[in-house]
Amino acid sequence: MPATPIAHYAAELQRHLRSLLGHEQIVTQAYGRHLLIKRLDDEEPTVVARLTELGGNRFSAAFRSHTGRWEALPGTGSLDEMSEVVVTLLQPYLQPDDY
């Protein structure tokens, strides 16, 4: 059975983020119409951000604040464009603890 489009996007996003960040301590997970971006820590993965599918290969981005609320990041764009936005704005939060 072929992967669902959102699951395919999750794998593509993970490859792109790892390439941009230069490390393998990032995993992604399809969750409804969202793509969760997690940093791998010693204990369990920490959700840092998410992309939300808007349709037509367009996504919006948000980060999880210290209160647990989702805060929107600026703009919408393709998967590649929004992964670059996430890395640019949230790079310190996407680095492994020992980085």
Rank of each mutant, 00 (worst) to 15 (best):
L35V: 01
L40M: 15
A30V: 04
L21R: 04
S78C: 07
T4P: 00
S19R: 15
L90P: 09
L54E: 15
L40H: 01
E24A: 11
S83A: 15
A11V: 13
R18T: 04
R15Q: 14
G68R: 00
R64Y: 00
A62R: 01
T76V: 14
P2A: 00
G68Y: 11
E43Q: 11
D42W: 06
Q91K: 15
P74H: 07
I37R: 06
V87P: 05
T88P: 00
R69K: 10
Q14G: 13
Q29G: 07
T28I: 08
P96K: 04
L36N: 09
N57A: 14
L51K: 05
S19E: 15
Q25G: 04
L51R: 04
S78M: 01
G55P: 05
L79V: 05
R64Q: 01
R69E: 14
S19N: 15
V86H: 14
S83G: 13
A61F: 10
K38C: 07
L40S: 02
L36A: 02
E44C: 02
G77I: 10
D98T: 08
L90E: 06
A7S: 05
N57Q: 13
L35C: 02
D97F: 13
Q14H: 09
A3T: 09
A7F: 00
P92Y: 06
E12A: 15
T76H: 13
P74D: 12
A61T: 06
Y9S: 09
S60G: 13
